[in-house]
Simulated assay, not measured.
Amino acid sequence: MGEVIKNRYEFVILFDVENGNPNGDPDAGNMPRIDPESGLGLVTDVCLKRKIRNYVETVKEDEQGYKIYIKENIPLNRSDREACESLGIKEQDDKKVTEALKKLKKSDKDADIKIKDYMCENFYDIRTFGAVMTTFVKASLNCGQVRGPVQLGFARSIDPVISQEITITRVAITTEKDAENKSNEMGRKSIVPYGLYRAEGYVSANLARRVTGFSEDDLELLWDAIINMFENDHSAARGKMAVRELIVFKHSKELGDCPAYKLFDAIEVKKNDGVEYPRKYQDYTITIHEDAIPDSVEMKRMI
């Protein structure tokens, strides 16, 4: 999987949505997430990580070293059991596994470490984002928390967005009884007409070296996944979504050359003059103030 990364990174993602719901809020009837005070649209870090996981799973197809731990409809204990088998525990009954793990912990004080290393080596998302593995086979062997080197914040729209509820109809009727009384059925969907969102992230070379072994190859896959995270995930509900910019800052050393906020502040996204209601990416201008970036930090626009 290549050499472990030696440089700290920060990055900024700009992505937009047109006539879609980028991230439904279960507390608000699955309408688009919006900050109630500012009116700015929100997309959670969990949502973005899901897109990255899905892309890696699609590209790698469970290739050795690139499995995904947090998957839809797959119990975590199923993946945990693979790690148990790596320690020679091949029991299928949970009770027997629990007993075997207790015996192992008494005889091998590094059992937790071996399990943790196995999970990092085999699961890309643990190696990247980390994981909380306190439910490991009914907590018989508590792997604890693996802190991943890659962290993402919430994405926030540049300008306030308006959530619209659209009434839709379908001509297919559900039951015979309903068909006697009506010719169509009504439904509703929530959309954002347009929104440009900004997310910021961090890559810690220190955590990569000390904890998960996140490598240069893993980093290249991460950039590829971010750029393409919406390309294989299109749906009518999400509308037209695309990553417009991925701007990466590479520090010259493991612990970095300057505070992250200085680099983030160097990227300015402004609505063009005369545009009242943005409806396309070209309604914005992206300016990078390179004089605010230290000479020891390399800036690269990946798209």
Rank of each mutant, 00 (worst) to 15 (best):
R156D: 00
K103H: 10
N77F: 06
L104Y: 10
K71G: 02
Y9Q: 10
K102F: 14
V248H: 02
K60A: 14
N30M: 15
M302V: 15
G130I: 02
K102M: 13
D94H: 03
L221I: 14
M299A: 12
A237M: 13
E63V: 06
V203A: 02
E290T: 13
N184F: 15
R209V: 08
R301C: 10
G65R: 04
G41I: 03
A139M: 03
G153I: 00
D273V: 10
I247C: 06
E99W: 03
N19R: 13
I162F: 05
I293L: 10
K49V: 07
G256W: 00
E276M: 10
S38A: 10
T175C: 08
Q145F: 03
E121C: 05
R170K: 15
K250I: 09
D257C: 09
K270E: 15
E268F: 04
M302K: 12
E180Q: 13
G130F: 01
S204W: 02
E57R: 11
N30C: 07
N21E: 10
A111L: 06
G274W: 05
R156A: 06
W223N: 04
G88V: 04
Y261Q: 15
K71W: 02
G274L: 09
A236V: 13
L221S: 04
K271Q: 13
D80A: 14
S163K: 11
I70M: 08
P75R: 05
D94V: 14
D233F: 03
S235W: 06
